[in-house]
C-alpha cells in the first residue's frame, strides 16, 4: 500500500511526506498499524548504521503480528511493540523527555498517532524541523467537539454524533497541533433538527 493522498486543504491542516533516513546520532521511530510499512520501506534506503542508534516504538492497533518479524529484522537498538497508543504512551513520554538535542523523529501511520506524538514532542522542545511524518492506513480523524471539548477518536463519517455531549457535528479541516485534533462544530446550529445524512469521508 502506498502513502495516503489527501485533497488540497487549508494551511492549518497537516501535510505528510515520505520518510527518508538521515544520518543523526539518535533516531526515534514511532508508528502505528500500517505505519510499519513506511519504516520497512525507509529501511531499504537507510545507511547501515541508521538502526544502531534507533529506537522503534510500534503500536499494533489491531494488526496483530503482521509486521513484527520484519520490524525485528531491522536490528534497531531498541524495539518496543505495544497493543494500543494508550499502552505505549508512558514509554513515549519517558523517551521524549529524556532525549537530547540532535534527535530525529520519524512518525508513520494514522493522523491520530502522528498528531499526538508531535504534540508531546514539541512540548518537550523537539523542533518541527526534526520531525518527519508519513501517513499510512486509515484516514479516520481525531476530533475535538468545540462545544463540550470532548475528544472523539477515529471518526470516519461526517456529520457524526459527539460521543460526549450528543450534538451532531460537522468536521472542519481546521487543525490544532496543541490538541492534536480537528474541530467538530454543531451541524444544525442555525436550523435545529436539520441534520444532513452522514457520509463516509474518512476510511
Amino acid at each position: 500500500m502506498s502513502t495516503s493522498k489527501f485533497e488540497p486543504s487549508i494551511i492549518s491542516r497537516p501535510v505528510y511526506g515520505k520518510l527518508s533516513a538521515q544520518t543523526a546520532s539518535h533516531n526515534l521511530l514511532i508508528a502505528d498499524a500500517q505505519g510499519a510499512e513506511a519504516i520497512i520501506e525507509m529501511a531499504e534506503h537507510a545507511p547501515k548504521s541508521f538502526f544502531e542508534q534507533a529506537h522503534i516504538i510500534y503500536i499494533q492497533k489491531g494488526t496483530a503480528d503482521a509486521y513484527l518479524s520484519q520490524l525485528e529484522s531491522l536490528g534497531a537498538n531498541q524495539l518496543y511493540i505495544g497493543p494500543t497508543y494508550q499502552a505505549a504512551l508512558p514509554r513515549i513520554l519517558n523517551t521524549l523527555e529524556n532525549t537530547q538535542v540532535g534527535i530525529k523523529l520519524y512518525l508513520a501511520g494514522t493522523e491520530g498517532l502522528i498528531g499526538q506524538v508531535i504534540r508531546d514532542a514539541t512540548r518537550f522542545g523537539v523542533a518541527m524541523s526534526d520531525i518527519q511524518t508519513e501517513h499510512r492506513g486509515s484516514t479516520a480523524r481525531r476530533i475535538q467537539c468545540v462545544h463540550c471539548k470532548g475528544i472523539i477518536e477515529d471518526v470516519t463519517v461526517d456529520p457524526f454524533q459527539c460521543s460526549h455531549c450528543g450534538l451532531f457535528l460537522f468536521v472542519r479541516d481546521h487543525y490544532s497541533r496543541r490538541i492534536a485534533a480537528f474541530q467538530g462544530v454543531r451541524v444544525d446550529a442555525e436550523d435545529p433538527g436539520n441534520i444532513p445524512e452522514a457520509v463516509e469521508r474518512f476510511k
Binding site: I10, I11, S12, R172, D173, Y175, S176, R177, R178, Q183
Partner: peptide, 15 residues
C-alpha cells in the same frame, strides 16, 4: 482561543 492557542500566524488564519 482554546482551539487556536499554539498556532502560528498562518495556521490561526487558515479558515
Amino acid at each position: 482561543l482554546d482551539f487556536d492557542i499554539g498556532m502560528n500566524f498562518f495556521e490561526w488564519h487558515a479558515p
